[in-house]
C-alpha cells in the first residue's frame, strides 16, 4: 500500500492471513487513494466497512454480513455474492456486487450507488434515504419499505409488499411486482423518470434493459399523517 500520492498497482490483502479489522484499519488510516485486492474473503463479515476516501477495493469471492457498509467516496466491487446488509447506510461512492445480495442490501443508504449484478433478497433498500440502487435481477419481499429518498431500479421482478409505507423514494421495476405495500401506487413514467432510469442503468453498467421498459411506483401520500379513515392500513 502506498502512502505517497501515486497509486501503485493494487495491493493484495489475503484475509486467510490478515484479519478483516487490520484491512479496514489500514484503509481508514490511508490519507491517499488506495487500490486493494481482497483475497479469500470466504464469507467474512464487515469487509471494507466505513471507508472514507477515493479508494478502489475489489473483493475477490463471496463476502459475509455488512460488506462495504457506511461507504463514502470509495469504489468497492465484490466479484461474488454478499450476505445481509450489503452497503448498509452507504453515504457516497459506488458499491458493485457481481453476484447476489442477501437481505437489507443498501438499507438506510443516504447517497452513492449500489449496483447488484444478480438478485437481491428481502428488504432491499429498506428505509432508503437518498442512495440509488440498481438490481440487475429481482428483489425480494418488503423492498423499499419506508423508503424516503433515492431510487430503486429493478430490472427483474419485485416480491410482495413493494414500497410499503413509502415516502418519497422512486421505484422503477421492469418485471412483475407480486404486490404493492400499503400506500404504494403505480405512477406515470414521465420524461424525467426515463432520463433518471437511463442514467442509473448506465452508471450500473446495465446495457440490456431500456428505460422505457420500466414502470414507476411511488407513494400515494395517504399515510404520512395519522388519519382515522386509514386506521386499517397502519
Amino acid at each position: 500500500m502506498t502512502t505517497g500520492g501515486i497509486i501503485s498497482d493494487a495491493l493484495a490483502v489475503d484475509l486467510a492471513v490478515e484479519p478483516v479489522r487490520s484491512l479496514n484499519q489500514r484503509l481508514h488510516a490511508a490519507t491517499d487513494p488506495q487500490a486493494v485486492r481482497v483475497l479469500n474473503p470466504a464469507g467474512r463479515h464487515s469487509i471494507a466497512v466505513g471507508l472514507d476516501g477515493d479508494h478502489t477495493v475489489t473483493v475477490e469471492g463471496h463476502a459475509g454480513y455488512y460488506c462495504a457498509g457506511m461507504n463514502q467516496r470509495a469504489t468497492v466491487r465484490i466479484t461474488g455474492n454478499c450476505g445481509p446488509g450489503l452497503a448498509e447506510n452507504i453515504m457516497s461512492g459506488t458499491v458493485i456486487a457481481e453476484g447476489n445480495a442477501s437481505q437489507c442490501a443498501g438499507a438506510s443508504g443516504r447517497g452513492g450507488l449500489l449496483a447488484i449484478g444478480g438478485d437481491a433478497a428481502a428488504r432491499c433498500g429498506i428505509s432508503l434515504k437518498g442512495a440509488d440502487i440498481v438490481v440487475r435481477g429481482s428483489v425480494g419481499h418488503m423492498s423499499a419499505f419506508m423508503a424516503q429518498k433515492g431510487c430503486l431500479v429493478v430490472c427483474g421482478n419485485a416480491g410482495d409488499a413493494l414500497g410499503d409505507s413509502l415516502y418519497e423514494a422512486r421505484l422503477y421495476v421492469r418485471g412483475v411486482v407480486s404486490s404493492l405495500g400499503a400506500d404504494c401506487i403505480e405512477k406515470q413514467m414521465r420524461h424525467d423518470d426515463l432520463e433518471r432510469v437511463r442514467a442509473l442503468l448506465d452508471a450500473a453498467g446495465v446495457t440490456d434493459a431500456g428505460a422505457e421498459e420500466f414502470r414507476r411506483y411511488g407513494s400515494a401520500r395517504k399515510l404520512y399523517n395519522f388519519h382515522p379513515d386509514n386506521v386499517g392500513s397502519y
Partner: peptide, 30 residues
C-alpha cells in the same frame, strides 16, 4: 424470513448453513 439461510451444492455435497462462511469451509465451496 428475518432468519438467514444459504444453501449450496456441488457434485460432492449439498449444504445448508445460517451463513456462507460455514459453507466456505467445504471443499469446492467457491
Amino acid at each position: 424470513a428475518c432468519k438467514p439461510a444459504v444453501m449450496a451444492e456441488t457434485d460432492d455435497w449439498v449444504a445448508i448453513a445460517s451463513e456462507y462462511r460455514a459453507i466456505a469451509q467445504l471443499p469446492g465451496a467457491e
